[in-house]
Every structure is written in C-alpha cells, then in structure tokens.
Computed example of a mutant assay.
Amino acid sequence: MADLKKFDENPQHQLLEEIKGARCVMLGSPDHDKHMQPMSPQVDVDAGVIYFFSDNTGELGSTILARPSSVHMCHIDKDYQACVKGMLSPHNDSATIDKFWNPMVEAWYPGGKTDQKMLMLKFEPHDAAVWASDKSSIGFLFEVAKAKIKGEMPNMGKSKEIQL
C-alpha cells in the first residue's frame, strides 16, 4: 500500500523512491509512432534524475543521440502509478556508469563498461501525474460495495499533478 502521508507531504520524493524500487518502467520514444519500451531505471534520488542503460544502435538510442527530446515514462505498481514527462538525453559520464554498474547490467554488455553499443540515457523529469492508494484487497472490495450501495464513486486513493 502506498503511503498517503508521503503522497501529501513530498510527492516528488515518493515518486523517485517508487521508481527506484521498480524492476522496470515503460519509457517512451520521441517518435510518437513508436511504442514505449520496458527499461530498468537507475535512480539518483538526491539529484532527481533517472538513468537508463541503453543500446546506441537501437531505435531509442539512435534517436536520442540524434536529438535529445521530451518523452514520457510510465510506472505502474499495484498501489502507485505515475506518468512522468521529462527530457531524455545521452549521458556518457564514466562516474555515473560506475555508480550504477552491476552484474545485471553487465549481462547486457559483454564488452563491459566500455562496450561499443552501450549508451547511458539521462531522464530529467519535469512534471508528473501520480496516483496512490492505501487500500488493501479487502479495503478495495469494501469501497466498491459501499459505492454501489450509496450510488457514488469508490474512494480508491489520491491523485495529483506535480512539478519536479
């Protein structure tokens, strides 16, 4: 269950922490005719930035190398959802690569940290729409039943738009 107190007090920090705990998010392309793709986020909560290891020969990597662009990123969890808009650009800083390098990342890049195909992308979030719920499965059913009896919408949590 999402912490609604954090949602009210510091939704920006909560968003980054939620994304940091995710195995993957869906990252959009600047080419809106292309589908979003799953990417593993590497989150620097203190800097408010999300990094992705990518491939410079793929559609997303080659497009961003040609022109950094505004894109959307979506995070979906059972109790927390977000649609984030921000700037995506290449980021070839060796200190950042070292900071987030791990055995899972290494599996994708046989050439190691200097693999010719590896491209680190930097996502700088600008704004987001976020939704959070503190309802358990039983609480969810209770809200649905109560709403049906009263003829109103169920109270499933909170939502808001935030600046980052």
Rank of each mutant, 00 (worst) to 15 (best):
S29F: 05
G28V: 02
P41S: 10
A129R: 06
K34W: 00
M26G: 14
V25F: 01
H126C: 07
F140D: 01
N56H: 14
F53I: 06
L65I: 07
R67Q: 12
D77R: 01
F142A: 07
S62G: 10
M87S: 14
S94K: 15
L141K: 09
V45N: 08
C24G: 13
T63P: 00
K148M: 11
D98N: 15
A128G: 08
A95T: 15
D77P: 01
D115I: 09
S89A: 12
Q37F: 05
D79Q: 03
D46H: 03
D46R: 02
E106L: 13
N92S: 15
S133L: 02
G28H: 00
Y51R: 06
G61F: 04
F140W: 08
T57G: 09
V144M: 14
R67A: 13
T57W: 08
Y51M: 09
H32D: 15
A147D: 09
A132F: 02
S136K: 06
C24V: 06
F52W: 01
A145N: 08
K99N: 08
D98H: 14
D46Y: 00
S69D: 12
S89R: 11
D127K: 12
I97V: 15
Q81A: 03
F142Y: 13
A107C: 08
F53Q: 03
V144W: 05
G139I: 05
P68H: 10
D127W: 14
T63N: 00
I138P: 05
G58T: 10
S94P: 13
D77S: 08
K117I: 04
H72N: 05
V25P: 00
Y80W: 09
D44G: 05
P90V: 00
V84N: 07
L141H: 13
G112H: 09
A66T: 00
N102A: 07
M120L: 15
Q116T: 09
A107F: 08
F123L: 06
K122T: 05
V144G: 07
M104T: 14
N56T: 15
L27D: 00
H35L: 14
T96N: 03
P103S: 13
P30T: 01
L60F: 02
K117Y: 01
S136T: 10
G61T: 10
P110M: 12
F142D: 06
A129T: 12
S133F: 00
G61P: 10
A145S: 13
I97L: 07
H32I: 03
P103A: 15
G28M: 02
D79G: 02
S69E: 04
G112E: 06
V84T: 03
P90G: 12
C83M: 12
W108D: 08
F53Y: 09
A145K: 05
A145T: 13
M104G: 13
E124H: 12
K78W: 00
Q42A: 01
P68M: 11
H35G: 09
I97N: 09
A132H: 00
G112I: 09
C74D: 06
M118V: 12
H35A: 15
D115C: 14
K99S: 11
N102P: 07
L141G: 10
V45F: 03
A128R: 03
D31M: 04
M118P: 08
G111R: 15
V144Y: 08
H35V: 11
D98K: 11
Q116C: 06
A147Y: 05
D77E: 06
S137E: 13
N56M: 15
